[in-house]
Simulated assay, not measured.
Amino acid sequence: MNENDLREAMRSTLVATPEPPPMDSATALTAGRRAARRRMTLAGAGAATVLATLGIAAAGPGLNLLPGDHTTPWAAPASEPAIPLPTDTKPSWPIDGDGRPQQDATARSGLRYEQGKRVLNGILAVVPDGYVTPTGNAGDGIPLQDHQAAVEGDGSWGYLASAAVAKDKGTGRLLVEVHTKDNKLAKEPCALAREFWGLGGTCERTTVAKATVGVVVTPGTDRRLDQWAAYRYPDGTVVFVAQSRSATNFESGLKPLDELPLTVPQLAALATDDRFHLQ
């Protein structure tokens, strides 16, 4: 997996499933292609294994992610005649920082891009004492620090950043994903936490000041991440903060950390940290 594959995986996790589009062929086809592309990306990124880097969701918010022939994911089965594709199916993307429409869901400049960078800077600012934050790429080509901003199917925005953290020859990661206030994610803290990337897991409600945070302390069968916290602000903004003993879930060549960088209370507190409360 190269950096472009990783960015595509990150983008897919940030794009929530859109509501059913109007029943005209162009819109329906565009929605189908987006959904198929999400499934294809997750296969390539290792759905059973996220996303990657420092640090992140897929089935819903925390986003995620089956083998097969995905060369033409929108085509009919071989046993059925293919439906002719309309030519006016190009989606309409937001304006990027250069004043022109984005190439796809990902912002590559401008305010939204800078918000994604801000999430990464926020992570780097809260790395615990005793840890360092390596840069460059892991042995599998995945960046040890990365960030992204992408528009979601419901019109809200998702910001995802990940950073490797190293100590005593071990390297893990911290990851933050933010969804702006118009998102359609779950409202109950633990339902929200279990929805992240569709990972499920054992969740505990934790109180931080007057805020109630859902924290998955033990993952389910999907072990891409070790622990994560989820918090919905009163205005609807959602923040996920995750940690893992491993820097990536691929062939990174990096030894995992002996222990997680953050305690459960620290993880929950970061989910309510105002530096990640973005619009």
Rank of each mutant, 00 (worst) to 15 (best):
L6G: 07
E8F: 11
M10R: 02
L14N: 07
P18H: 08
P18A: 11
T27L: 13
L29R: 13
R33F: 10
R33D: 11
A35C: 01
A36F: 03
T41L: 14
L42E: 04
A52I: 07
L54H: 07
A59V: 09
P67T: 13
D69H: 11
S79Q: 13
L85K: 13
D88C: 05
P94S: 12
G97Y: 00
P101L: 13
Q102P: 02
T106I: 15
A107L: 08
L120T: 06
G122D: 03
I123N: 03
V126W: 04
A138T: 14
L144S: 04
G153N: 05
S156G: 12
Y159W: 05
G170E: 03
G172N: 00
V178E: 06
K181S: 12
D182F: 10
A186G: 09
C190Q: 07
G200N: 06
T207M: 09
V208P: 02
R223V: 04
D226L: 06
A229Y: 06
A229D: 04
Y231H: 13
R232T: 00
P234M: 09
G236K: 00
G253T: 00
D258R: 10
P265E: 06
P265V: 08
Q266I: 05
Q266D: 11
T272A: 15
R275K: 15
H277V: 08
L278E: 00
